Simulated assay, not measured.
Amino acid sequence: MKRLWTPRWIAVHLATVLLVLAFLALGWWQLSRAESGGNPSSWGYMLEWPVFAAFVIFLWVREVRAVLRGDAPPAPPTPEQPRDPNRLAVRRPVRTEAVRRATERSAYGPARPPADD
């Protein structure tokens, strides 16, 4: 249970509560609009907002269960942790001399003088 009280998880818990309350309040607001002569869209939104709140709760429960089971993805390495030597690093491409020569010969290479018409 201690894993669920890190600063990141406290922010997730707080965001979950705030989103659920906001979505339920928006559903209540749409209900009041629909009851006071609203259109079919108001009735649809009145049903939609609680579904959004339920989805937030579903995601929160799924993530909590994953952490408690140990299925959560590993955290990114911090500077103190050594990187995995078997993992490939993505680097910027290097322009070699052969690539430069091929680019000069291509239609997309350096500007060429206009042809005589």
Rank of each mutant, 00 (worst) to 15 (best):
P85I: 13
P50F: 00
R112T: 14
Y45R: 02
A22G: 06
K2R: 04
S36M: 09
A66N: 06
S42L: 07
P40R: 12
G109D: 06
W43V: 09
A15E: 09
P114A: 02
R62L: 00
S36Y: 10
R100C: 01
T103D: 10
A11F: 10
L24R: 03
W28V: 09
P73G: 13
V17Q: 14
T78I: 05
W29Q: 13
D84W: 05
P40Q: 12
R62D: 00
R8A: 10
A107N: 10
A11S: 15
E48C: 04
L4K: 01
A34K: 02
R95Q: 07
W29C: 08
V90P: 00
P74H: 09
I10Q: 11
V51A: 02
R65Y: 03
D117W: 09
A15R: 12
M46L: 07
Q30C: 10
N39W: 07
E104C: 04
V12M: 14
A25T: 06
A15N: 07
W43Y: 15
V17Y: 13
T6L: 12
N86T: 01
E97I: 12
A89Q: 09
M1G: 05
W9V: 01
P50I: 01
D116G: 10
P110K: 07
A75G: 13
A98S: 04
Q81A: 05
E80A: 14
W49M: 14
G109N: 04
I10V: 11
P85V: 14
P85R: 14
F23T: 03
F23R: 03
A115N: 02
E80S: 13
L21I: 04
P114E: 01
G44L: 15
A89V: 07
A102V: 12
W60V: 00
G109E: 06
R91N: 13
V17T: 12
P74A: 15
T78K: 12
E104M: 08
V99Q: 13
L59Y: 08
W5A: 15
V64N: 00
L18M: 11
V94Y: 09
A11D: 15
R91T: 15
P77K: 13
W43H: 14
R33C: 03
T96P: 01
V20P: 00
T78F: 04
T96E: 07
Q30P: 00
G27R: 04
A54L: 05
P76G: 14
A102L: 15
R101H: 05
A102Q: 15
T96K: 06
G70T: 05
R69S: 09
T6N: 12
P85G: 13
L18H: 10
R8S: 07
W29Y: 13
V94F: 12
A66T: 01
P85M: 13
G44C: 14
A66K: 05
D71W: 05
E48D: 08
P7M: 08
A34L: 05
S106Y: 03
S106I: 06
R95H: 07
P82F: 02
S36P: 00
A11W: 11
V99L: 12
P7I: 09
R92A: 12
R87L: 06
E63K: 03
L14S: 15
E48A: 11
